[in-house]
């Protein structure tokens, strides 16, 4: 599960020990042990209802862990240190429909800051939204909305990405784009945890798999 210890291992991004979550006294996911370091991409596998989204929300600090402990960048999930370097992309993308793609990116930068060499226009072009910068998000297709969210991901300085079904709604090029962004993020020392229900299109560089039983 975890890679062999290197001579100078990159920093721990997530460390979960016997992490479990219960909702109304029913176990959502059982005790989990896993660790994710900088430069690693983790995959969360499991069927519908196995608690993938819940796990990501616990790691983001949106839900309190039920049992066990979990640390994100050495801090409690949801603490200020953890929030500064974590970003979650869920089923709800968190884009304001009335604002343009560019304005939505600006909101993200206002809340999180901006990665060192990132430029909103260049990133919009990279995700294939050249010419859509001033289009209201309401008028974009589902796939294009997803691309705006991906652009935000690349634009912000978060080191840990929590991606819930990032491939949903995307065409072949979009899937390649996600893989591309992930590879680049890992190369820069970031880490990502990605959920998928079974059939995934992701091959390269998965270094850790967390399997959830339904």
């Amino acid at each position: 599960m975890s890679p062999p210890p290197a001579t100078s291992s990159p920093p721990l991004m997530i460390e979960a020990r016997a992490l479990g979550f219960t909702r109304r006294d029913e176990d959502v996911f059982g005790p989990l042990d896993f660790a994710l370091r900088g430069g690693e991409i983790g995959l969360i596998e499991g069927d519908n209802g196995s608690g993938k989204t819940t796990l990501l929300r616990v790691l983001a600090g949106l839900l309190r862990p039920g049992t066990g402990t979990v640390q994100v960048l050495g801090a409690q999930p949801g603490s200020e240190e953890a929030r500064a370097s974590t970003i979650i992309m869920g089923h709800l993308l968190g884009l304001k429909a009335d604002l343009s793609a560019l304005e939505n990116l600006r909101i993200g930068m206002g809340l999180y800051g901006r990665a060192a060499d990132a430029n909103p226009d260049a990133i919009l072009a990279r995700v294939g939204l050249d010419g859509y910068a001033n289009e209201a998000v309401r008028d974009l297709s589902a796939g294009q909305k997803k691309r705006v969210a991906l652009a935000r991901l690349a634009l912000l300085p978060a080191r840990l990405w929590l991606l819930d079904e990032p491939y949903a709604n995307l065409d072949r090029h979009g899937i390649a784009l996600v893989n591309d962004l992930l590879a680049q993020h890992a190369a820069a020392g970031g880490a990502a945890l990605v959920t998928s229900h079974g059939a995934v299109n992701f091959h390269q560089g998965v270094t850790c798999t967390v399997r959830l039983a339904a």
Binding site: A60, G61, L62, G78, E80, R83, A84, T86, I87, I88, G90, H91, L92, L93, G94, L95, K96, A97, I107, G108, L111, Y112, G113
Partner: peptide, 22 residues
């Protein structure tokens, strides 16, 4: 309601800015 429905509220909760100021 709107921020809750489109997930923007989550982004606000998770951003490093103090929630009370937002």
């Amino acid at each position: 309601r709107g921020d809750l429905d489109d997930g923007a509220l989550e982004q606000m909760l998770l951003s490093p800015q103090p929630l009370s100021v937002l």
